[in-house]
Amino acid sequence: MSDRIEIRFAGFGGQGIALMGRLVGEVISLHEKGKQSVMTQSYGPESRGGASSCDVVIDTQTIDYPKSTEIDYFVVMSEEAYHKYIPRLKKGGIIFVEENLVTLDDQAKKASKIFKLPATAIAETLGSRLYANIAMLGFVCANTDLFSEEAFIQVMKAKVRARFIEKNLTAFEMGKNHK
């Protein structure tokens, strides 16, 4: 049987949604033994400014279909994205939500767990909303077995520009430690 796991990251343009997918995808593909991943993203002019989303599919076997069909983990950072994709959340799936930007409704009840993070507010304490995505990934890392902190930090150091590394590491740490 397949160990397929589907993650959807969603928010609005400018939140660095695709970067979240790329980082997690790379951590799993290159650093988590025995696991593969595929990252796909919505693309093009319509993904700028408006809704933005990407999928990371993880499996221990070869991944045939590269996109999500029934979402296991829904990491959502905007109200619009929440309404657009919540119907696709698997019953018993898990939601990670930017609590100040999304108001959950009854549809969220099918989730087995809901984790809430004021990611943008955390980022603002570091001087820029741009760190919200990494704070959220710290939060995801702490509350799932999806990927290890060490591998993530290794990848982030390689992918993020040097002058932004310190604050991103702090953002990750703050997300990770949020209760």
Binding site: G25, Q36, M39, T40, Y43, I63, P66
Partner: peptide, 10 residues
């Protein structure tokens, strides 16, 4: 195709 071109894998 667009999907193959833009998707990321190992």
């Amino acid at each position: 195709d667009e999907t193959i071109g833009h998707m990321s894998e190992k």
